[in-house]
Design a protein around this nucleic acid. Structure first.
Length: 572
DNA sequence: GCCGTTTTCGGCCCGACTGTTTTCAGTCG
């Protein structure tokens, strides 16, 4: 059973955490964390990289030492460094450190002085009033610990981007009047367009003594004020979403926005570049000594650092800094590049709009084409079409097409991939379609091997244009099924089959890393909404976000092409 | 533990807020 990348990343994170508690060199701790992030972002499994003879120490943040350790983990399934740390520091110290206000230093004090190893130990000590007696702790610390222990979940909660967007829009609407002529922006992972966000980071310009943060505290949806100072305020909304508001002077807007947009790793890389030149970069600007040499806009800071402007979606320290220096950043795909949607449902299966209504909505968006891709019969709950109904629908689409001007409906199907990889319609029918999206909708629990085989077999059918939502995940609700994405990508390339970035905000499947891997292998992608209603065609922008995070350019995306070119390029 | 068109050793991002303190360590982003 090969060790997955995610497991090795988790081992390194745990190692970092315990090393930190132990009081190890903080840069060694950071090295483990950075390596974990690198591994998480790898498009291929470490097992296959190693098998292919790749030198792992060439990966960013992974040197000779960690490369050897990874090889050891892959061979044995175990990581001796972590195991020995666990022997030294047994218990649930990681869980304890997750309590707000408790970090490695204080966890160590609790462990050394009160022998606290578990959350239960901590609860007993706090109730007995023994924590307040420790140096560096007080009554407030003890109270905060008890409150935190009383809450059901300590795990980090992340919000889907679409949900965070609704919160952000309401909040901005509330705060904006108080900003006056100043500027305001939502930064953080929200601006980087990650599929989920942990908190909202808002940057406003104004004087530090500004009343804006006071206003935030008064916002009706605030349930808790975590911190409230002149330059920074942190609150938690009723929904549980945390909001950090940062006030900077107008001449620092660019640096403040950049600092708060992150990612942290991207910022650290930029600050390192500033250091190399003897400068300093912080949220107030880029400084040569005490002199500010840039800060009002992000663009001028990147320029001074000798870099091309890096779009927020790329700021993950996944190679964008080096590419920006070499002027080789991709020209990312934009919403305006999209000429049509290749995955949409109607009242023929489980959609809420008719073919004509969907066509009108697509035309309103300025599209040249829209593929009607209703479910096939296996998806009974969605009233999937059988062969006879699909044949009738094809006639109907042709009839509607004659009434349309400027928009072409493409005849399609979202055909189910059966458990053995066969498709839910016979070839003679599939051959009449312009677009065939093949998707998995059941039997998610097949082995990795069998699931991969199933989908590859579906791609063997030359009528298949696109594999729909290739991993089946629903963000926050359903894990992706086990599948070997490297093999899927290689198989798609070989067969000239496309993969989908499903733009539905619950799916966003493929994710950024897989999309980048597909591009790297020369596979084309379709960004499709899977719309079940006319308004859902607007989800396209979430798909664009994900595609941009995957470094995709317009040429990588088939539905940026004109109808004529599209038809040519999807022919297999 | 990583990394290097000045370096294979000596650096490694930087500041705000809180609580516990009498000047600052720890935590957080």
């Amino acid at each position: 059973m090969p060790v997955h990348n995610a497991e090795i990343a988790a081992m390194f994170d745990q190692t970092a955490e315990l090393l930190e508690i132990e009081g190890a060199n903080p840069f060694r701790v950071r090295a483990y964390r950075k390596a974990a992030r690198t591994i998480e972002a790898l498009p291929k499994s470490l097992t296959s990289l190693l098998a292919a003879g790749e030198d792992l120490s060439k990966l960013p943040g992974i040197g000779k030492d960690l490369a050897a350790k990874i090889a050891g983990i892959l061979a044995s399934g175990k990581f001796e460094v972590l195991q020995s740390l666990k022997r030294e520091l047994p218990g649930e110290l990681g869980d304890i450190a997750a309590i707000p206000g408790l970090g490695p230093k204080r966890v160590k004090i609790l462990y050394d002085r009160l022998h606290i190893r578990t959350l239960e130990d901590l609860r007993r000590a706090a109730r007995a009033g023994r924590i307040r007696e420790l140096k560096g702790f007080g009554e407030k610390s003890e109270q905060r610990i008890l409150v935190a222990l009383g809450k059901p979940i300590l795990t980090e909660k992340r919000f889907k981007l679409s949900v965070a967007e609704a919160e952000a829009e309401a909040l901005i609407k509330y705060v904006k009047p108080f900003v006056g002529r100043g500027q305001i922006a939502v930064a953080g992972s929200y601006r980087r367009r990650r599929e989920t966000v942990g908190d909202l980071d808002i940057v406003v310009t104004g004087r530090k003594t500004s009343t804006i943060s006071d206003r935030l505290v008064d916002y009706e949806n605030v349930s808790e004020v975590v911190a409230h100072g002149p330059a920074r305020t942190t609150v938690i909304l009723r929904s549980g979403l945390q909001v950090d508001l940062r006030v900077v002077p107008a001449q620092s807007y660019g640096s403040g926005l950049m600092y708060f947009t992150g990612s942290k790793a991207h910022n650290i890389a930029l600050r390192g570049l500033a250091n190399d030149r003897g400068w300093k970069l912080n949220e107030y600007g880029l400084f040569d000594g005490k002199r500010r040499i840039a800060g009002a806009s992000e663009a001028e800071i990147y320029k001074k650092l000798g870099l091309a402007y890096v779009p927020p979606e790329l700021r993950e320290d996944r190679g964008e800094v080096a590419r920006a220096r070499a002027r080789q950043l991709p020209h990312l795909v934009q919403l305006g590049d999209i000429r049509g949607d290749l995955h949409a449902h109607t009242t023929w299966s489980d959609g809420t709009a008719t073919i004509a209504e969907m066509a009108a909505a697509a035309k309103e968006r300025g599209y040249e084409y829209l593929a009607i891709t209703d479910h096939s019969k296996h998806v009974t709950i969605a009233h999937g079409l059988d062969s006879a109904r699909l044949a009738r629908q094809i006639d109907e689409i042709e009839r509607v097409n004659e009434t349309l001007d400027g928009l072409t409906l493409l005849k399609g199907s979202e055909v189910d991939i059966l458990a053995d990889g066969r498709l839910d319609f016979p070839d003679r029918l599939l051959s009449r379609l312009d677009v065939v999206v093949a998707s998995v909708h059941y039997k998610f629990d097949l082995s990795r091997e069998a699931q991969t085989e199933r989908i590859v077999r579906a791609m063997d059918n030359p009528h298949v244009t696109i594999i729909g939502h290739p991993t089946g995940r629903l963000i926050g609700a359903r894990e992706p099924y086990e599948v070997d994405m490297e093999r899927l990508i290689a198989a798609a390339k070989k067969r000239n089959c496309c993969l989908e970035i499903n733009a539905e905000p619950d799916r966003l499947d493929l994710n950024d890393i897989h999309a980048q891997a597909a591009k790297g292998a020369g596979v084309k992608l379709a960004i499709s909404t899977d719309a079940h209603a006319t308004h859902a065609l607007a989800y396209m922008r979430f798909g664009i976000d994900q595609a941009r995070r995957g470094w995709l350019e317009a040429d990588d995306v088939i539905n940026t092409r004109s109808l004529a070119k599209l038809k040519k390029s999807i022919k297999r």
